[in-house]
């Protein structure tokens, strides 16, 4: 129905707009803003398929998706934060705190595991709330506020068990990350797909999601348009914290253990994924489709280089260059 109405729209025909009406619809499609990174991902997959016979297989594809879930979940939250022009340096540490709470509550306090799981995710949300309040109420720059949380959460993660790790989770829990239902999907991958879809729908189709772009474009313009900038900013940081908590549960299931040193440096990987996906660190630009593509570019690079057997030292160089190339060409493309 909507298709027909656009064709017969008298405005489009009578005013004689120079570009065909279809461009409008195309660019608003699922992948809007993510075409560049997607081409990159496609070429990477092609290249690795040539290089390694083990690469282009269903099994390895599932492996890559498995391997990308933790980073992917963190990057979803980071996308929101970066769209409003903020940054969240604390996600790696918040993940560590949540994962320790998950192990610590049952081990030292006898809290049943089913209760510890939501509590540990809430702890992540709480960290996000503090970030949001520091940014909106105390008016700290996001970089400083979350840098503070990065340190505090890491410290708390160590305090819980005095730096010791916790090993051994219920079988059903670790099964969430390892058992592939229908031979394809683990529950954690399914969870990632659900979360990514929800985030995509939120940013694309909800008025609140659109408001985030306005805040990132200009806080002042957004405020003058009646958007509740402070409230939404807090919401975004809370979401980022909650997602770090969820990512920690995925990691615990995958590793069958909790370590206070978990997630060290993950915030930078998450930021890299979002930026490779075409977001702008100055805010207002970014998309879930782009971020998911960015996450898989990083995942495919790691996996492919391992499969091809390239030395770890060269891998670091290649990944660094890939980030620079992706972002440079995205910037050039936007400018032209």
């Amino acid at each position: 129905m909507s298709n027909r109405s656009s064709v017969t729209d008298p405005a489009a025909t009578s005013t004689g707009i120079s570009s065909p009406p279809s461009t409008y619809r195309d660019r608003k499609s699922f992948l809007s803003g993510a075409q560049g990174p997607l081409i990159g991902l496609f070429l990477l997959i092609m290249g690795f398929s040539f290089c390694s016979s083990a690469f282009f297989t269903l099994r390895n594809g599932l492996n890559i998706i498995d391997q990308s879930t933790i980073l992917g979940i963190l990057a979803l939250g980071m996308t929101g934060v970066i769209i409003i022009g903020g940054i969240d340096l604390s996600v790696g540490s918040v993940l560590a705190l949540s994962i320790m709470v998950l192990g610590w509550l049952p081990q030292d306090f006898g809290v049943p595991f089913w209760l510890a799981l939501p509590l540990s995710i809430l702890v992540g949300g709480l960290c996000g709330l503090v970030n949001g309040l520091l940014v909106t109420r105390a008016k700290l720059p996001a970089f400083i506020a979350t840098l503070t949380m990065m340190s505090v959460a890491r410290g708390l993660a160590n305090i819980t068990t005095d730096g010791q790790q916790v090993v051994g989770y219920p079988e059903w829990f670790t099964g969430l990350a390892t058992e592939r239902y229908l031979g394809v999907l683990t529950v954690t991958v399914g969870l990632f797909i659900v979360l990514a879809t929800a985030a995509w729908v939120f940013l694309k189709f909800r008025a609140t999601g659109r408001s985030l772009y306005a805040i990132g474009g200009s806080v002042e313009v957004a405020r003058l348009a009646g958007i509740q900038v402070g409230k939404l900013t807090i919401l975004v940081y809370v979401a980022s914290g909650l997602l770090a908590g969820i990512a920690s549960a995925v990691m615990a299931a995958r590793l069958d253990s909790s370590q206070p040193s978990s997630g060290l440096g993950y915030e930078l990987d998450a930021i890299a994924a979002v930026v490779i996906g075409g977001a702008s660190l100055s805010g207002g630009i970014g998309s879930i489709a782009g971020t998911v593509t960015g996450v898989f570019i990083i995942g495919v690079l790691h996996n492919g280089l391992n499969l091809v057997g390239i030395s770890p030292f060269i891998q670091q160089v290649v990944i660094g260059i890939a980030i620079a190339v992706a972002v440079t060409f995205d910037t050039l493309r936007r400018r032209s």
Partner: peptide, 19 residues
């Protein structure tokens, strides 16, 4: 700096404030 979001589309700018 207060009226329009320069890097966003005209459509998004028009919708702003009318959500």
């Amino acid at each position: 700096s207060q009226g329009v979001l320069l890097d966003q589309s005209i459509a998004d700018n028009l919708a702003l404030g009318n959500y």
